[in-house]
Amino acid sequence: MTGNFPEEGNARPSLAKRARPFEAAIRGLLFVSAAISVLTTLGIVLTLGTESWGFFREVGILEFLGSLEWQPVIGDFGIWPLFNATLTTSFYAMLVALPVGLMVAIYLAEYASDRVRETLKPVLEVLAGIPTVVYGYFALATVTPFLRSLLGTELVGVYNTFSAGIVMGILILPLVSSMCEDALSAVPRSLREGAYAMGATKLEVATQVVVPAAFSGLAAAFILGLSRAVGETMIVALAAGAGPKFTLNPFEPAETMTGHIVRISGGDISYDSIDYRSLFAIALVLFLVTLALNILSRRIVAKHGEVYE
């Protein structure tokens, strides 16, 4: 295999078959780097799993999923108040991000001239690059006071899920609109031309031909946006209020799953306490919900995505 060319050999040893320890070592190193991502996932699953296991042995999964009270002081660990607040903020976030995001996407993909699009897209990217804690400040210091002066201070609390949800909608708007725009732009020109040839107006082409054709991409964008809203932390930590509370009133304070994790872990907490483990159980729920949404989003694209060549 290795060594010099044999003088009397009739076949030269293949260069391709020569052992190359350096190349092999590099190969191994690259593989290990790629495998670190798998280790990360494993780490997440294992830490969330073992700590939650310890929690569920003490509390019981039925109480965790069945009780409407989360009051660690008296031993009540029902996730619903936290989960409900997460749903409320995510609902209002989607109420903003879904219609506005779709409309912005339709405008950019179908109506805007190239020059307008080239100027507006970076602006939306800037919006996407602003740290979430800044949005949290915006929600607490600007949006909430504005809502209070608009609707009355008795109705709207200093901390409320509505204002946190609205600002969260603004946060995920760029994500939703840019994914929607990609989906709309991927619809081939011939489909539009065909509709115009039948006498459709621009609006009819956009809403009755292009949007249905891109539907899977749009659905994927919304689900990914929802997943982002569920996992979003700093806005709700600052603006939605502290203290778990089961309420459907969006103007009352209520703590979300992420908000609770941040508030409790930011304070003094002793390891190996039930409070500490309960955070991992919440995180496990959060992880499973967002993972399911992400997988669903990608499934939709993979299964129902139209492929135009």
Binding site: T47, G231, T258, L279, L286, F287, L291, N294, R298
Partner: peptide
Amino acid sequence: YNLAGVPSIIYGML
């Protein structure tokens, strides 16, 4: 791809 979608707070727990 799935890791890219995990909420940042989960990384904090990790």
